[in-house]
Every structure is written in C-alpha cells, then in structure tokens.
Amino acid sequence: MGWTTVLFIIVGAVGLGLLALSMLGGELFDFDGADSVLSIEVVAAVLAGFGFTAAFISALPGVDLPLALVAALGAIAAVPVAYLAWLLTGRARNMPTDATPNRTDLVGRPGVVVTEIRAGGYGEVRVRIGGQQVKLNALADEPLPAGVHVLVVEAPSDTSVKVRLADPERN
C-alpha cells in the first residue's frame, strides 16, 4: 500500500469522524443553519466519499494512475455521496411529526381503572394516548373497582382526569 492510498484513507476517516461528531454534536457544527447546502454532514460526506474512493482507485492492483487523475475520480465520486447526504439530512430535519399530546386530548379516551377509585377520593387509571400507555390520577362520581373500563370525561390537570363507567355491560 502506497503513501497516497494511506493519505486518502486518512481523508476518508476524517470525513467519517466529522460525520460522527455532527451526529453527536447536532447543530454545534453547522456552518450556515439547517437550510444551507453547506452543512457539516455534506462536508463530511464529501471528505469520506473522496478519500475512500481515491484510496480504492490508488490501491487497485496493476493500475498505476497519476495522482491528479486519482484525485479527480475521487472528487467525481464525492458529488453523488454529497447529494445523498444533503437529501437525507434535509429530509430528516424537515420530517413532519405529530403534535405533542396534551390534556385536552385525553377527553373521550377509554381507559381501565388500575387502582380502585373510592367515593370522594382518587384512584388511578391507565389510558392510551399517542401510542403510549399513561397512568393518571382519576376521580369519579361513583366508586369504581380495579379492572373496570372507563371513559375520560374531563382533564382538570396534566396528571389527573375525571372518569365515568364506559359501558356497564362490558364490565
């Protein structure tokens, strides 16, 4: 393995290291914000694509290309790698997500009593919201034993709800 191959491998490794830092550091290393074509991920992809492609070409057995041609081929190979990095990071940054569920989303949800709700006191219910099971303090107009299916009718706070019996025939 010649010194040029080692040099190109080092350039590719620096690109991978920079990519790892950008993944861990997030926006600390961005040059011009998330909307820019010149992001740290794109620069890392250019370095890695250039370095590893040029190292591969320079290490081919029986092929002795001039250093300038090897570097040019590495640069050409770095273009689609950079484009893919730009495309993927842009899509990841602009990915649509659902709104964060809040207490108004609890009203109307079915649940199950986990800890008995006594008359005039609190118990606990388990309700599914946003794909997650949450356990909440619960109040009811009538005592409800554990295991009973209920329906949330009010959410006075983020951690407590008022419930009623969901379907008397189901319980």
Results as ranks from 00 to 15, higher is better:
T89Q: 08
M95H: 14
F56Q: 03
P110C: 06
P101M: 01
L69K: 04
G74H: 05
A72S: 12
A99R: 12
L47F: 05
D105N: 11
L65K: 02
L47I: 02
A99D: 15
V63L: 11
P80T: 07
P96R: 01
A54L: 02
G108N: 04
P66A: 13
V113G: 01
P61F: 03
I57G: 00
A71V: 06
E41P: 11
A59M: 07
T104N: 07
A77Y: 10
L106N: 08
S58F: 07
V79M: 09
N102A: 13
V79C: 09
V42H: 02
I40D: 06
L69W: 10
S58C: 06
F56T: 08
S58H: 07
V63F: 11
T53Y: 01
V112I: 10
R103F: 09
D98H: 13
A71N: 04
L88G: 15
W86F: 15
L69E: 08
T104R: 05
A75Y: 13
T115W: 06
T97C: 13
P80F: 10
P66H: 14
V79Q: 12
R109G: 08
A85R: 03
A71P: 05
T53N: 00
A78H: 03
G111F: 04
T100M: 14
D98R: 12
L47V: 02
D105I: 07
F50V: 00
N94D: 15
V107M: 01
A68Y: 14
T100L: 15
G74L: 04
L106R: 06
